[in-house]
Design a protein around this nucleic acid. Structure first.
Length: 303
DNA sequence: AATACAATCAACCGCAATTAC
DNA sequence: GGTAATTGCGGTTGATTGTAT
């Protein structure tokens, strides 16, 4: 059971005197019980604060700062494998604390990966819509599509998530086309394997979409267009997986359904508009696959 | 020089897991 | 086995420092 720290105990940065008291006490008596330690050591601090101060800063042998390139590579590799399991990552780096690794990740490594175009959460390359050389119509549609989908609030996240969304939507629309039953939507950072292994249990629910802030996207002609903007009036279609982070559900295969599918709309208004000679969405998609400018996109989906 | 903004990181908080009784 | 106490973890905050205007 969580409890608030004892009343009247000091908070905030530790003074030299406090550090000295804590070090002297632990050197003499050992760590023992952190709850009783402050009183016995003559410190007006809660046990939790003492433990944190000792384990992260005062404990002998702690290595602070000066992360080498090798350290960075190790942390990045471990993060890719373990995610935000800072204590487990720290266990692989002798004398480093989980708190310092966490701070280093959040302030340095995360940004470094983003600059390299790598999603720090998935450790996968962030697809760039601008590299797809999409037309203004297509980008607007992607932008509008995303507008009703994700609460993520950075441009990079927008690009990564919207791209994932398109992949999933494309795959799900394809699967929907050969599946007589309505399919649920995939949530969050799900990879292709998860999608394929998904247990297709339909879960209908009503909710509102959480929307995003604005970003800019560059069209193939170089012009910048506004990215998704917050629109509290946008509502989710009726059959949507019940989660704040859920993606909109597929359009129903039943003809009586009136649910509007954003991707279908995107394909009809954008892809087909770009290739009016194509008779249907799948012809247009095939055309898109053949397009050299989109090859990496499809390799990413199919690979 | 003054101010605003951004980056950093020590420390806190809430919750979960573990341990003690 | 159940409950309370303790410890550990990860997310977040806010004070401090650095940089830009």
């Amino acid at each position: 059971m969580a409890r608030s720290p004892e009343n009247g105990v000091k908070k905030g940065p530790w003074s030299i005197e406090e550090d000295k008291k804590l070090i002297e006490y632990i050197e003499k008596h050992g760590q023992g019980n952190w709850q009783t330690l402050p009183k016995q050591a003559g410190l007006n601090r809660c046990g939790k604060s003492c433990r944190l101060r000792w384990t992260n800063y005062l404990r002998p042998g702690i290595k602070r700062g000066g992360f080498s390139a090798e350290d960075e590579a190790t942390i990045t590799a471990l993060h890719k494998q373990l995610g935000n399991k800072w204590s487990r990552i720290a266990a692989h780096l002798p004398r480093r604390t989980d708190n310092e690794i966490k701070n280093f990740w959040n302030t340095h490594l995360k940004k470094k990966l983003l600059r390299k175009g790598i999603d720090p959460t998935t450790h996968k390359p962030i697809p760039d819509f601008n590299l797809l050389n999409l037309s203004r119509t297509q980008l607007s549609s992607v932008s509008n599509l995303y507008n009703v989908i994700s609460p993520l609030d950075t441009a990079l996240n927008f690009q990564a998530s919207a791209n994932d969304l398109i992949k999933f939507q494309l795959l799900q629309n394809m699967m929907q086309a050969i599946n007589p039953n309505p399919l649920p939507y995939v949530q969050g950072n799900t990879n292709l394997a998860d999608l394929i292994q998904l247990n297709w249990i339909f879960n209908g629910a009503n909710t509102d979409f959480t929307t995003s802030t604005s970003h800019s996207l560059q069209c193939s002609d170089g012009e910048m267009i506004p990215g998704p903007i917050r629109d509290d009036n946008v509502k989710v279609p009726s059959n949507v997986y019940n989660s704040e982070y859920s993606l909109p559900s597929l359009f129903s295969v039943t003809p009586e359904s009136s649910v509007v599918n954003p991707l279908e709309n995107f394909m009809h208004t954008s892809i087909l508009a770009e290739a009016p000679e194509q008779s249907n969405v799948f012809d247009a998609l095939e055309s898109l696959v053949d397009d050299e400018a989109s090859s990496s996109f499809w390799k990413d989906i199919l690979g």
